[in-house]
Design a protein around this nucleic acid. Structure first.
Lengths: 330, 330
DNA sequence: CTGTTAGCGCTTTCAT
DNA sequence: ATGAAAGCGCTAACAG
């Protein structure tokens, strides 16, 4: 591997001059620049970024931590992230944790060991103490979720209000027996959405049958199974609020298979692309995915440039998208 | 930021001893180890991986280049990659190119500038010359596709045979008017699958109506639109081979909306999770996603450890998965 | 068991 | 316009 020193020996210039042409410094004669550029071409020299990072003590890289690679929810988010990051000259790399704490810790090390300048976390298995401690010394922001009691920046929607709105839609449609398919892990988005759900019922004077609240995983099959369980009870609900579109799609699939699609309404969460085209469409609450990504980066960059800035939470607006999976109670 | 030198000053030991305890070298007294570990805890020291990489000249990192983050096709692939990589002590990071050459080049730089030790490319906008040149000096392997004339390693299925098999299934079902929704970009998988398709028709003595071959993008909406176009011709086919499940799902959606789902058969490609649950299921050809990922890493690691090894292509088996979207011609 | 030291590749200050 | 040299944080060969 040819280094800057090799180039110096080869051209007769010093490493300083080589460095200057590599970095487009104007303080180089035309002659030197031409000769050195020629040598670079001839040798196939590529600057070693590691040496550069060490010297400069930053990498111009951001790490995005994702729980899984197969959720279309992150497509637009990533576009927003990429947009903002590249505009600022940063490059983004992704780490997928498979929801395993041990893998997550390895990626956290990329931050603490100075391989990346900051990190956006879409989902974490760490607790508020871990998170606060890391946030104290390193730039991180939580994306599309927050963590109670953690001293860390985040950009998210108002999950409680959004869940309230979703449930309210069902109520306004005349439904009085409403169930919820929530998240299995006791994490913030699920907690907040459950709370919004319960508040809406309470405000409408509607009871919550305890067997109408089921917690499950964030995927199609889990949603399908949970819905089956929900509908197999003695007094099944006529409407279901799901904590995520993937669950809602699974639920709708079960209803379709049971010929129940016209009698029970389903509303999801996220407004993921599939919810648009599954059957007659899944009614859902939209998260501003692109902006969530964009604003996360903006906030992260701010933290990077001012490490002493206090954590900050920014809340973005949500809205309901009505499609075929919801209809008036009969 | 506390460095190894700070720790040396603080504890009275030399940097060498600090380094030894950080790297779990056995040649350290219990006393020293205890004192140093205590100091590490107290100061919140994290080894700087950049310094380490520079010294060691490897990063124990692999880069996976993906065209997009929203294709569930890559979920299992990534699991296979992660499995093999972590077993070998490597960490994997992902770069998403959004199908833009300019973004792709930035990620390639992570390889050429020594930030990662090797790269797996799931999709590229580079040509065979670029690719060959990079492959000459840096460890790369192409995943789930190959490139004619490029001197580069790849792990893939036999796309031609797979497409042949898929088309043959339609023929065996009695269909004689068969269309294809292919990829818009003139890339290898599409080329090979078109060829397999044509070969199957030819071997069965079936004509290909030129208007029955439409090239489109790899997504739901494009598939839907292309199907509409296909079915709006004067002599629409009774069966359609799609180059990807996403396209097949879009096509099936169109057929469903037009009440044609029982008269025209659809077969997709990839066996992505959605094809299992969309309507009555989409018949498709399975790619061994997990193994594709796993074997890619194994091959890449081999290249890393022996840079002079010649490029190698490994072909993994495929098979057909019959579901509700295909039925006998009537 | 521990310390000294060179050097990985690079940027940048300070001279010239 | 160019070069010499220091130093970013780390590891490892060598000496003791």
């Amino acid at each position: 591997m040819v280094s800057i020193k090799d180039l110096a020996n080869l051209t007769g210039y010093s490493v300083a001059t080589i460095s200057r042409v590599v970095n487009n410094s104007p303080m180089v004669s035309e002659k030197a620049r031409a000769e050195i550029e020629e040598a670079i071409r001839a040798t196939g020299y590529h600057p070693n970024f590691i040496g550069r990072s060490l010297r400069l003590s930053f990498s111009m890289k951001l790490l995005l931590l994702l729980p899984t690679a197969e959720n279309t929810f992150y497509g637009d988010i990533l576009r927003g992230i990429e947009q903002s990051a590249s505009a600022a000259g940063y490059q983004v790399v992704i780490g997928v944790t498979q929801n395993k704490l041990e893998i997550e810790k390895k990626y956290i090390e990329m931050l603490t060991s100075r391989q990346v300048d900051g990190m956006i976390i879409a989902n974490t298995n760490m607790d508020k103490f871990d998170l606060s401690r890391i946030s104290e010394s390193f730039p991180i922001v939580l994306l599309a979720h927050s963590m109670d009691g953690a001293n860390v920046s985040s950009v998210t929607i108002d999950n409680l209000a959004a869940a309230y709105d979703a449930t309210k839609l069902l109520i306004d449609l005349g439904h009085t027996s409403i169930g919820m398919l929530s998240g299995r892990y006791y994490r913030n988005p699920s907690i907040e959405r459950e709370e919004g759900f319960k508040n809406a019922l309470k405000d409408a004077g509607l009871p919550l049958n305890p067997s109408h609240l089921i917690r499950t995983d964030y995927d199609f099959n889990s949603g399908k199974l949970a819905c089956k369980k929900l509908m197999s009870g003695k007094a099944p609900p006529t409407a279901i609020f799901c904590v995520a579109d993937s669950i809602a799609i699974g639920a709708e699939r079960y209803l379709l298979d049971s010929g129940l699609e016209n009698v029970v309404s389903v509303i999801g969460f996220d407004n993921v692309i599939e919810s648009e085209y599954f059957y007659n469409g899944i009614t859902t609450v939209n998260q501003p995915k692109y902006d969530l990504g964009k604003v996360s980066v903006d906030l992260l960059l701010k933290i990077i440039s001012d490490k002493s800035a206090p954590p900050e939470t920014v809340v973005l607006p949500h809205y309901l998208v009505e499609r075929g999976s919801t209809s008036k109670a009969r």
